[in-house]
Design a binder for these strands. Structure first.
Length: 194
DNA sequence: GCGACGATGGGCT
DNA sequence: GCCCATCGTCGCA
């Protein structure tokens, strides 16, 4: 295994810590033989069946089964009829938890990413969870894939850990109908925010 | 710059 | 039949 790739043990702990720890790591996508990559700068944690913002609130279904599986896998789902969203399965097998990758700083394969995000400025290429998947060509075909396999099509490498001074936390976004205390849990992490 | 809203389809009650 | 872990565009300032 490449020494740069984050091992499954990285994900095998509290998902909130994993969300924090993924800031500054490098998400790599091999698309048609070409390497595309970006630095993870925004994440959110979703933890367990009790968390009413987490898809696992409805229990284990065909859709959420991957979240109950081993840590270090990709949980990728389709929403709003048009967007794919990428998550990193965390915590021990059997406990449903995952980190939503909400934004990247584009780093490698910029020509391809630019073409996939045609007509938009660089700042708009990967500044949202749907945009990340659009930019890197991430779809449900990769659901359940191993993020710890450097020979796969999607994996995450150790890159540049982010110091506490550069991290901001806030409640998760896009979950307006969720009741407290879940609505206000500070489980969103942003690095080097504007 | 900002708020409203439509697109569009799968999952779940 | 309702609800989305969203995005891009439109209208208005």
């Amino acid at each position: 295994m490449s020494p740069r790739v984050l091992p499954a043990s990285f994900y095998d702990r509290d998902v909130v810590q994993v969300a924090r720890g993924l800031l500054g790591m490098r998400l790599v996508r091999i698309l048609e033989g070409q390497r595309l990559a970006g630095i993870i700068v925004e994440t959110e944690a979703y933890r367990g069946e009790d968390d009413l913002a987490c898809h696992a609130r409805a229990g284990k279904t065909a859709r959420t089964a991957v979240m109950y599986g081993p840590p270090g896998r990709a949980y990728i789902y389709f929403t709003y009829g048009m967007h794919w969203l990428l998550n990193c399965v965390s915590q021990p097998e059997g406990y449903p938890a995952a980190v939503l990758v909400r934004a990247l700083l584009p780093l490698e394969g910029l020509e391809v990413i630019s073409a996939r995000r045609a007509g938009r400025s660089k700042a708009q290429w990967c500044n949202g969870p749907g945009k990340v998947c659009q930019a890197l060509g991430v779809t449900g075909a990769l659901n359940g894939g191993d993020l710890c396999d450097p020979r796969g099509e999607l994996f995450i490498e150790l890159y540049q850990p982010v110091p506490e001074s550069a991290v901001q936390t806030s409640p998760r976004v896009g979950i307006d109908r969720v009741p407290e205390p879940w609505l206000s849990m500070p489980w969103r992490f942003v690095a080097y925010s504007h």
